[in-house]
Amino acid sequence: MFGQIKWKLGLLLAAVMITGIFMAGCASDDGWVFATDHEYSVRPDGYPGLAELYGFEFDDVVIMDLGITYAALRDGEVPLAMGFATDGRIAAFDLVNLVDDMQFHPVYNCSPNVLASTLDDYPEIEGILNQVVPLLDAETMQSLNATVDIDEKEPADVARDFLLEHGLIGETPPAADKGPVGVGSKEFTEQLLLGQMAVMLLEDNGFNVVDNTGLGGTALAREALENGEIDIYWEYTGTAWMAHLGHEEPLTDPAECYQKVKEEDLANGIVWLDYTEFDNTYTIMMRRADAEELGIVTISDLADAINEGVPAP
């Protein structure tokens, strides 16, 4: 039975193979390849704007999940990657942040977002959470992140130790008589730490807390807050300005960005408490050895190297 249609099948197979060969021709893995997460690839305060301001283009941009960019860079699979400035892996993997000498990257200070309706019921939440905010500078956050990512401690243990050390909570929380209050967070280390801190601070003040930390990405956390499925999570000023409030132009002044976001989000029934000193902005990373060998310290140096045709490490 196959005899008469053999040629048809053959034709189909040939077509598939030709398409395959044609499409295989488009892959290129050499040169100044840049590993980035999804968000950074399109945001105006991400790669498109960076390339425009500094006047260069990477040979190829590979989009992957946030968090595997660090290992891809460490393992030599890409010469360049994006990361976040407070990530503990930067020092641990012997990577360097290139200096953003033209101050392109916008500000991402972090602040607890609380539903206005929840704050109406429990106004003391503001004071409780604001206690921890001034303690969080860049160095502290980086070392807390490293304790989780590199030393493989549990975020909850690290958060508890930190709060105990600063005398913000007692050894055992009192019996819960208020709430319930839902605390969420995104899925990465810093957010888990901040989320756990919020959970513990509230529990220490007699709240019955529903722990929803590690919800997923930015959009999920925000939707959960908007829908009232959680009452609190920590958001970054720059993220809210662009992603949630839909602005296209990034802001680079911490206080200005915070004020504008706070004002606009009040209309959405969301209250921004105080903001941290640390600014978890985007950073462009290289391996330390490569950067030293090529004499690249700033993003301008990198742009020059790419434009002059220096071969990628």
Binding site: H38, S41, V42, R43, I63, T218, A219, R222, A243
Partner: peptide, 16 residues
């Protein structure tokens, strides 16, 4: 990091 139409979907989710 393998690309494909998922790039559009995942990017769309992350920047809403």
């Amino acid at each position: 990091g393998a690309g494909g139409l998922g790039d559009l979907i995942a990017t769309g989710i992350s920047v809403r």
